[in-house]
Amino acid sequence: MTVTDTLPRRSRAGILSVWIAAAVAGLAIGLFVPSDLRAAWMAVALGACLLLAFAVQLAGGRSHGFTVRVAASVVGALAVLGIVSLGFGLAAVVPG
């Protein structure tokens, strides 16, 4: 009896690559952008992650589950950017 994999390994790599790109973009924004412009740039980074998710999933060549994979990529990128911005926001509030 064979067990079918619900999400192939290659699809997971595509989703994780978008999450990693979101983390890198969020850290770069947090380090190099002034604090009053960070929220706007985080929105730009999320838009770039959306485009990256489409490109990565289209390059994979599988149509089955395309929408789910893109949604997982973008929602994960949103969560990553939210966590990064929360970290920088807390760092700005804490006296140091």
Rank of each mutant, 00 (worst) to 15 (best):
A59Y: 08
R12H: 12
M1K: 03
G65R: 06
R12V: 10
F54W: 08
F32R: 09
W41C: 07
R69L: 07
L7H: 07
A13K: 10
L27Q: 07
G87S: 14
A77C: 07
I20A: 15
W19F: 07
R12C: 05
V68H: 08
L16E: 00
R69S: 09
A22M: 01
L50G: 08
D36V: 11
L37K: 10
V84P: 01
L31K: 08
A23R: 04
G26M: 03
T2G: 08
A72H: 06
A91N: 10
S17T: 11
V68W: 03
A43D: 06
I20T: 14
A23C: 06
I29W: 02
V24Q: 01
T67M: 13
W19P: 00
T67R: 14
V80S: 02
V24D: 00
R69F: 01
A43R: 11
G82C: 05
A45N: 01
G76A: 08
P95F: 14
G65D: 04
L50I: 11
P34L: 09
A40V: 13
I83N: 02
I20M: 12
A23K: 03
A45G: 01
Q57A: 06
L31I: 11
R69K: 13
V80C: 07
V80L: 04
S63I: 13
L51F: 15
A59Q: 08
A28K: 04
G14T: 05
V18R: 00
A55D: 13
T4V: 15
T67V: 15
V80G: 03
G30K: 07
V18W: 00
H64E: 13
L16V: 04
